[in-house]
Each structure stands twice: as structure tokens, then as C-alpha cells.
Nucleic acid binder design. Structure first.
Lengths: 150, 150
DNA sequence: GGATAATAGTTGATTTTGTAACTAACAAGG
DNA sequence: CCTTGTTAGTTACAAAATCAACTATTATCC
């Protein structure tokens, strides 16, 4: 109503501020998927991400996952431990550089990944259905650019 | 390289999965603004949001802020207390319904809001400069739709 | 070679968040 | 009125995120 402090010719509206909008959209559009990996698979956000990175790209190190997904190394470390405990992934020391651990999904990790990937695919299609095919493609491109994933 | 598990005709790529993309873009595109409100004003994410809601829309209750910004009431409660302690906002009991608190920015809260709003405006322009004017407008529209802010 | 710095990953202490239970005030129906 | 239910907001305790310090290993360079 009162629209206080918008004295300066209404040049700013929170509802158009990209960091805010992006966050609201991200939050809202991950709710439904979150219920699946959380309630049905007992996973945390970082955990499904690590799982998906390994499922999607194959063998990676913790560091590589952190770089690609912009996840801090302590979070990656803890997610990897959880996934290892559930026997979804296994670590192997790199013999050329013994600081490094190469991570890969176990058979059971792969099967969980495939299940979740199917759900993700459907859910993504449902979200994209808000738009025309062209709009959705443009949206993904714009998001990749904003995310610095060019 | 190996692209494991993409056996199923490459119908899925994490880099195109909207919930992931949205989150990456949201994360990346709020880093710079975060440094400002965090390091320079000692605020948390929920705190600048509450501040901006009051600055942008005027007097609101905690509940209204929670609804508009999809922030859980306990988070709003704590952010309000912090902002009150810093004398950025004041609460007044609604005399018609004494459960309700009407929140408004103090003079000093308004001045912090205006400073941050200026920074936000510039930053938003910088982000939008990745795109044409039309693309940026479309992006905002699509994000509002995904966020259920129609 | 040996000191120094850098890197991969982990651990511990502190903050922040999330979940549930709580208080206080109001509403509705008997 | 008075029990029962609902709502606004807070608080307590558990879960998770953050930040700094740590170990172990490799790289640099004098």
C-alpha cells in the first residue's frame, strides 16, 4: 500500500532484483525434487549433487566436484563420507599423487543415480512446460551465463 | 571424458537441469552483493531481505514478510530481533489484534536501506548487461513464474 | 638434498538453520 | 462465558553450514 521509500522515482523494485528473483525461483523450483531425495532417499542437497556429478560425468576427485558445483571442500568431504557409508561410492587413492582420491559410484550408487535421474528428467520437463521450447532453451542459456558456466 | 552412465541416449545433462542451474546462477549472482551486506553491514541473508521488504513495501508484519519472501517464521523472527537490536526497525503492537506486530524501519534503517538499494540497483544493472533489454525482461518474467510470484 | 610453500582432503569449534514445542491472543460454537 | 481450535510470534534443541586449523603429500627453488 504505502510503498514507503520508493520516493526515488520507483527505479527499484525488490520483485525485479535478479539475485532475489533467482533465489526465489531456485528455492521454489527445487522443493518438489528435494522431497524426493530427502524423504525418499535420506539425502542432503550436497549429497545428491555429488551423486549426480559422479553419475553424469564419471570418475572425479572431490576437488573437481567442488569446482564444478561450487561446493566448498568441507561440504564435499562430508557428503562423500556419507555416500561412501551408504556404499553409493568408492574412493581409490591416485597412485601418482597420493593426496588425491578418485571417486566413482558403486553399482548400487549407479542404480540410485538412475532412479533419481529419471525423476529429475520428468521434473525438469514439468518446469520447462511453463514456457515454449525456445524460451526454455534461452532460459537455460541465460542461467548458464549468470552462473559462469559458459 | 568418460561420461559414464549417460548410456540412455544422453537425455539428461546435469548442466541443463533447471533446479541445479537456477541454484548455481542464484549462488553466483549473489556473491558480490553478499560481500557488501555481509562484510560491510554485518548482515545475514535473511536480514537484508527483511530490511528490503520493509524499505520497499513499507510497514509489514513478520508474517507478511514470511509469505512474500517465503522465509520461515523462525528465521523472520530472528532477523527481526537482530535488526531491532541494531535499531534498524521498530515494532509496534497492533491494538486491534495484540498478537500482531507492525514492523517499520527507523530513520537509520531507512538510510541503510537506501544505501544498499543503490548498490543493488547498480549490481542488478551489471547482471542484466549480460543480456539484451528484451532478454532481461523475459528472464525476470520467467523467474517470477517459476517462483510462483505471478 | 632440504627448507619452504602449495595442494587434497579432514576435523573441530562456532554460527546458523530447521523442527517441534511453546506462549499469548483471538475466534467460533455450544 | 467457556471449551476447542487457530493464529502470530518465540524459544529450545538437534541438524547442518561455515571458518580456521590441521595432516599428509607433492612441488618449488636455493
Amino acid at each position: 500500500m504505502t510503498q514507503q521509500n520508493n520516493d526515488e522515482k520507483d527505479e527499484f523494485d525488490l520483485r525485479n532484483f535478479l539475485p532475489f528473483l533467482l533465489n526465489q525461483a531456485a528455492e521454489e523450483s527445487s522443493l518438489e525434487f528435494q522431497r524426493v531425495y530427502k524423504n525418499r532417499y535420506g539425502m542432503l542437497r550436497t549429497e545428491w549433487r555429488v551423486l549426480f556429478h559422479l553419475g553424469n560425468y564419471g570418475e572425479l576427485t572431490a576437488k573437481e566436484i567442488g569446482l564444478r558445483a561450487k561446493i566448498h571442500k568441507t561440504k564435499v568431504s562430508r557428503a562423500v563420507r556419507k555416500l561412501e557409508q551408504r556404499r553409493y561410492l568408492k574412493r581409490t587413492r591416485d597412485e601418482n599423487d597420493r593426496r588425491v582420491e578418485r571417486l566413482t559410484l558403486t553399482t548400487s550408487g549407479q542404480s540410485v543415480y538412475r532412479e533419481l535421474r529419471g525423476i529429475a528428467r520428468d521434473y525438469d520437463a514439468k518446469l520447462a512446460a511453463h514456457f515454449t521450447t525456445g524460451e526454455a532453451a534461452l532460459l537455460r542459456m541465460m542461467l548458464r551465463r549468470l552462473a559462469g558456466m559458459e
